[in-house]
Simulated assay, not measured.
Amino acid sequence: MKYVIRTYPKQILLFSVLSVILAILNVSNALVLQLMMNVATKKSSLSYSFLVLIVISYIIINAIFYYFQQYNSEYLAKKSISLYRNIIFERISAQRISSFTKKDSGEYISLITF
């Protein structure tokens, strides 16, 4: 993990911020539902059309943050896999071929190049 943190600090920070925002949006789902219940039981003076706009905007904002968080998650996953694959490949390549006794070096290298 330390290699990924050193190599991609901005992406990890962005992922963390997006995750926190998405968590807040998911928790605020209860607030939107409570607002809908208050309008339905006439405890709130909001009009129905304004409530519909609030719910639609909430869904759109939630979807946008979810998309960007998932996109960043996939980006970090692919970059970290590539980074670790390169590190393992360099370490295997640096060893002498005679140190590979159970299998030949080609089999070890093929395991990480799938």
Rank of each mutant, 00 (worst) to 15 (best):
R96I: 00
I97S: 14
S82P: 03
S28G: 12
A77N: 15
E107I: 00
S82G: 14
N86M: 10
S80A: 13
V27R: 13
S110G: 02
T101V: 03
S73T: 12
F89T: 06
L31I: 03
M37I: 01
I60V: 07
I24V: 13
L46H: 11
A23G: 15
V17Y: 13
L83V: 03
F15C: 09
L83A: 07
N62D: 02
T41K: 15
A23M: 12
N38K: 10
E90G: 03
R85T: 08
A63G: 08
I109V: 13
L14D: 08
Y58N: 03
F15S: 12
A94N: 07
V17R: 15
L111Y: 15
Q95T: 06
I64C: 05
A77W: 13
V27N: 13
S19A: 06
A30C: 04
L33H: 14
L111N: 15
F89K: 14
I56K: 09
Q11M: 07
Y48V: 05
Y66K: 13
R96E: 05
I60T: 03
I61Y: 10
I59E: 05
K78S: 08
S73W: 11
Q34R: 10
A40T: 07
I59C: 10
N26H: 14
I87Q: 14
S49W: 12
L76T: 01
Y67R: 11
N72I: 00
L13T: 14
S98D: 03
N29W: 09
E90L: 04
A94H: 10
Y108W: 08
K43W: 11
A63F: 08
S93Q: 07
L76N: 05
F100M: 02
I24R: 13
S80F: 07
G106Q: 02
M37G: 11
S47G: 10
S93A: 06
I92V: 06
A63V: 00
L46K: 10
Q69C: 00
R85P: 05
